[in-house]
């Protein structure tokens, strides 16, 4: 087992080692005794069986003793859980949102990132939500996991004590792209983190004079579109979006096949309500974006897709 890089994780690892250690001892005891009896009392060696109906003392002993052992395990597991209940005062708050099939992280209500970037040595409080179905945020190196449930807000916290990049998974099965719903948790030095935060904020801010408009290319990644649609001609779970504008495509509408031209209206409809026209040969699984995408985000995405050559 690779060492945990959070304080909570060390507690988890200790509990794991203690409990697993006891389990190994119990296992060797059971299997050792079984093997010994099987080898020792063989009929082929002329052993004569002796009927023993039971032994009240032994039954009591192996009922009471294991109760103490498992209560000890229970207590050890509880210790590490209790610490997870409440984040320390002054923890940095990051909002995490899951959707099919991408994570997005929000800092100070403005800065967006598709990776969980945090400073080393400072407690971080992640507030989880979901915009469609249940996902689960899991960073094995931190020993944290929490479901992101639509309609609810859930909290998980940690203090990373080592810089580096760590795997971040979705661990609640969420459909076709589940195993692609990956990201990284990046632990930086405090100064680097401050610089990253400022840099990302600046990049997110519209340049002076320009309209306040999110970039379609960024949205395409951040909203999870790229988990199913490529821009280079390969089909994935969904059709590619390379140079589709103005082309004709066969779709299935309410069970009937027809041919439609891909115009702006079609693109908007396909995002807000993808089940209306489903491209033939692909499963009808795209989550509807109605109420998820803001109007200007939708516009930006449509413009982006129109421009894909």
């Amino acid at each position: 087992m690779r060492r945990a890089v959070t304080g909570l994780g060390h507690g988890t690892d200790n509990a794991f080692l203690v409990i697993a250690g006891i389990c190994v001892i119990l296992f060797l005891l059971i299997i050792g005794l079984t093997a010994y009896f099987v080898l020792r009392y063989r009929r082929s060696k002329g052993e004569v069986p002796e009927d023993i109906h039971g032994n009240a003392l032994l039954e009591t002993a192996w009922t009471i003793l294991p109760i103490f052992i498992v209560l000890y395990m229970f207590y050890y597991g509880w210790l590490g859980y209790d610490a997870r209940r409440k984040a320390p005062e002054g923890a940095l708050t990051v909002k995490a949102n899951g959707q099919m099939w991408a994570w997005s992280f929000e800092y100070d209500g403005a800065v967006m990132s598709d990776r969980l970037v945090v400073p080393v040595g400072r407690p971080v409080r992640v507030v989880l939500s979901s915009s469609d179905i249940i996902h689960s945020l899991y960073v094995p190196a931190f020993r944290i996991k929490q479901d992101a449930v639509p309609g609810l807000e859930r909290m998980v916290w940690f203090t990373a004590d080592k810089t580096g990049e760590y795997d971040l998974f979705c661990t609640e099965y969420c459909g076709t792209g589940h195993s692609q719903m990956l990201s990284k948790a990046v632990v930086m030095k405090e100064a680097e983190f401050t610089a990253w935060l400022a840099g990302t904020a600046a990049a997110n801010r519209p340049s002076p004079g320009a309209e306040e408009r999110p970039s379609g290319a960024d949205l395409f990644k951040a909203k999870g579109c790229s988990a199913c649609h490529t821009t280079d001609g390969r089909p994935l779970v969904g059709p590619t979006l390379k140079a589709i504008f103005g082309k004709k495509v066969r779709v299935s509408t309410a069970g009937k096949e027809r041919e439609v031209e891909i115009d702006e209206e079609y693109l908007r409809r396909s995002e807000l309500d993808p089940a209306t026209d489903v491209v033939v040969g692909f499963p009808p699984i795209m989550p509807p974006q109605k109420g998820v995408l803001k109007e200007e985000e939708l516009n930006a995405l449509v413009e982006y897709i129109k421009g894909l050559k």
């Binding site: 509990a15 794991f16 409990i19």
Partner: peptide, 21 residues
């Protein structure tokens, strides 16, 4: 026995957070 004992490991709260799913 392996199944039962690994169940004890999973039953422990803080360990379960790591091993769940």
């Amino acid at each position: 026995s392996i199944g039962g004992l690994t169940g004890l490991i999973l039953g422990a709260l803080s360990v379960n957070v790591h091993l769940h799913d």
